[in-house]
């Protein structure tokens, strides 16, 4: 019996290794951080992440400038400044029906919002029109923010065929079909 159990554990471990790959690559053609995410798969849903993500307002800026989250994530908007801010987005991926205004709150306090709709959320402040930030709501838990040179790595993507999209502020999105089998490479070249 002991032997069988060990074999089972071994087989299970092998199966996990064999069927979960990574996507890594480089986003070029633009400079600075980009976001790469796996588009939704028909018939597949993912549980909403329980971990909350914080976007700060500090020194008249959204910090970080770009935040990527999975669909269903609750984002807490913190105001670290001694001045009043406002957080709103006019649309999500251009859909104005999904626009929302969170209002104003004092220094040190937070206001939460659960992003149930995937897409690009441009964060704005109606007191400081120069303030700019982005929340990229990925339809899957498979996403990454690139480093400044454009390199990224998305872990734990089950093997299979996907559409992978790269987003960069001010550039045109690019979606490529990617067949994930183990360690897979996917490069993107974006243009403004």
């Amino acid at each position: 019996m002991k032997k069988i159990a060990l074999v089972t554990i071994f087989m299970t471990a092998l199966a996990t290794v064999a069927f979960a790959g990574t996507i890594h690559g480089k986003v070029s053609g633009v400079s600075g951080e980009s976001v790469v995410y796996v588009e939704g798969v028909a018939g597949k849903t993912f549980p909403a992440p329980t971990q909350h993500i914080t976007v700060d307002q500090k020194g008249l800026m959204f910090v970080p400038h770009i935040t990527a989250v999975a669909q269903g994530t609750t984002v807490e908007f913190l105001n670290s400044d001694s001045v009043a801010h406002n957080v709103f987005w006019p649309s999500i991926s251009g859909n104005k029906k999904l626009g929302h205004n969170l209002g104003t709150w004092p220094q040190g306090q937070r206001k939460s919002f659960k992003f149930d709709d995937p897409g690009i959320v441009p964060l704005l402040c109606n007191v400081h029109p120069e303030m700019s930030g982005y929340v990229i709501v990925s339809p899957t838990p498979y996403f990454a923010v690139t480093d400044k040179s454009g390199d990224f790595k998305i872990d734990n993507v089950p093997d299979g065929a996907y559409t992978v999209t790269a987003w960069h502020e001010g550039a045109k999105n690019k979606s490529n079909p990617v067949k994930v089998a183990g360690d897979t490479t996917a490069d993107f070249t974006l243009s403004k």
Partner: peptide, 8 residues
């Protein structure tokens, strides 16, 4: 500034 529902 006054706190409005849609911003200060």
């Amino acid at each position: 500034q006054a706190a409005g529902t849609t911003g200060p």
